[in-house]
Design a protein around this nucleic acid. Structure first.
Length: 480
RNA sequence: CGGGCUGUGGCGCAGUUGGUAGCGCGCAUCGUUCGGGACGAUGAGGUCGGCGGUUCAAGUCCGCCCAGCCCGACCA
């Protein structure tokens, strides 16, 4: 008995070490050293990404955004035009120097982001205030050669969307920055069930080339912060160097006011690190590639003939409710089938066996709580969607409670250090606004300013580190 | 690039004082099974990260190189 349970633990451990591989393979190019940090997104992980794309794309379009596509290769000189931008990105760009068997006249960089090449187009597209606002989004892959890649969260190549807009006034652009951050917050909270704190980045953390950067920050289960999306106010910085000008209503030339905003496949990592448990992924219903898996159970042909028609019938009925259903009738024992879908985080498992046939019922098991419920077959079409809604709600509430429980209001530096050394989490505290102070905090505790939340109580207090008066509370945390 | 650890079937690992490679999982076939990772039998799968050295003999000892992981600097 003890032997078999020991063996069972061993088996689970083996699988645990690779449960995430249903989603992404990392380091499979390990023998090719220069390709380290690249990733392969498996079909299951890609299905999650496709769902994210679909929802976000619809939300973008509601705000008037259109999709377009721009080149992967960018002339090196484009990147160099904006001083802060080149300083921020030059260390991490991959450069193509040879192609077609020849040395290139001008090296091409693989885009780390597309502000420069898109503005090159915009400078030709925009003539008049009537051409504005120009609201464009691109779904693309980009490359950033970071020193230390990290599976899921900081891969060398990643997929993302980047929106690039041009407006006639500063106010319009700033409204757009906020509008898109609101879209991200809504998407991440309502679909991914990840609570986030929205705010502005400090100057040291802002995007290279932006006037200011806004962001949403989420808390992972290890209490570290993950930036889940950013929306930047670019001002006229890129417009000036790429000559994006328009004739305004008064017949005067003006530079356009711009924004850019993006979220990436990093969100898949965030999703996993927010909700998953020791048994594998937990995927919120609103983003899950499969809502429910039906597992027919039978031990011989006779039982199979009884069970299968009911299982098939139920699958059809649930599909009519707009649910994505998998009927897993593979020739495997039930246990391994249960476990496989559990690892993949399918929100509901429906078991149908001979016992259920007798009772006209099924057994529904929730992935988030493990609760089992007997449901009459003819009530499934009504009840399963309700359970899915409840799972979605429960995941968000659970994560919200975790975020709340691990966010600490701190006034004193000793307390700050103690929290960062021990439990970690988010610290909400007053900050003087000085970059030097920010750096010292980072050096001492590894915690950085994740954001300056929009929600402020208009008070003021002593900076948690230097005691000077600060007007705003900021969120400190160790970050990915 | 600094500091630590590690490279052995698909995955996880063992390999004593050097003697020519093994275990678990997974995979395949057959049988018994089947409501939470079943069991038995049989079988497939490895130039032990690379190069060089010591030796009659190297997964094991020595040197160099390469790669990966963790910790720092960089970052979505």
């Amino acid at each position: 008995m003890s032997q078999s349970s020991e063996q069972s633990i061993t088996k689970r451990k083996d699988d645990f070490s690779k449960w995430y591989q249903d989603v992404i393979d990392g380091a499979q190019l390990a023998e090719h050293g220069s390709a380290k940090g690249t990733m392969v997104i498996r079909p299951y992980g890609y299905a999650i990404w496709e769902n994210m794309q679909k929802v976000l794309d619809a939300m973008f379009k509601e705000t008037g955004v259109q999709n377009a596509y721009f080149p992967l290769f960018i002339p090196e000189s484009f990147l160099k035009k904006e001083a802060d931008h080149v300083e921020g990105f030059a260390p991490e760009v991959a450069v193509v120097t040879h192609a077609g068997g020849k040395k290139l006249e001008e090296p091409l960089i693989v885009r780390p982001t597309s502000e420069t090449i898109i503005n090159d187009s915009y400078s030709r597209w925009i003539q008049s205030y009537r051409d504005l606002p120009l609201l464009i989004n691109q779904w693309a892959n980009i490359v950033r050669w970071e020193m230390r890649p990290r599976l899921f969260l900081r891969t060398t190549e990643f997929l993302w969307q980047e929106g690039h807009t041009v407006h006639a006034t500063k106010e319009d652009a700033e409204d757009r920055v906020q509008m898109m951050l609101d879209v991200y917050k809504k998407f991440v909270e309502e679909y991914l069930a990840m609570p986030v704190i929205a705010g502005r980045k400090s100057d040291t953390e802002k995007f290279a080339g932006a006037d200011f950067t806004t962001c949403i920050e989420a808390m992972m289960q290890d209490k570290k912060a993950l930036q889940a999306g950013t929306s930047h106010m670019l001002g006229q910085n890129f417009a000036k160097v790429f000559d994006v000008k328009f004739l305004n209503e008064d017949g005067e030339q003006e530079y356009g006011w711009q924004t850019s905003w993006g979220v990436s496949t990093r969100m898949i990592g965030g999703l996993i690190m927010t909700h998953s448990d020791d048994n594998g992924l937990v995927v919120p219903p609103k983003i899950a590639p499969t809502h429910a898996v039906i597992i027919p159970i039978f031990s011989d042909e006779k039982e199979k003939k009884q069970v299968m028609p009911v299982a098939e019938d139920l699958a059809e009925k649930l599909k009519l409710e707009d649910l994505k259903i998998i009927l897993d009738d593979r020739d495997m024992r039930p246990g391994p089938r249960f476990f496989e879908w559990e690892k993949k985080g399918v929100p509901i498992r429906i078991e149908i066996g001979p016992k259920d046939i007798k009772n006209n019922s099924v057994v529904a098991v929730r992935r988030d709580t493990g609760e089992k419920e007997n449901i009459k077959q003819d009530e499934c079409a009504k009840k399963i969607p309700n359970i899915l809604d409840d799972i979605q709600k429960n995941l968000f509430e659970k994560a919200s409670k975790f975020l709340k429980d691990n966010t600490h209001e701190v006034s004193y530096w000793d307390e700050f250090k103690k929290i960062m050394q021990n439990n970690g989490g988010f610290i909400s505290a007053y900050w003087c606004g000085n970059a030097k102070c920010e750096q010292e905090i980072k050096d001492e505790t590894k915690a950085t300013i994740r954001c300056i939340p929009f929600c402020q109580d208009n008070g003021s207090g002593k900076c948690v580190h230097c005691d000077k008066t600060g007007k705003q509370k900021v969120i400190f945390a160790k970050a990915y």
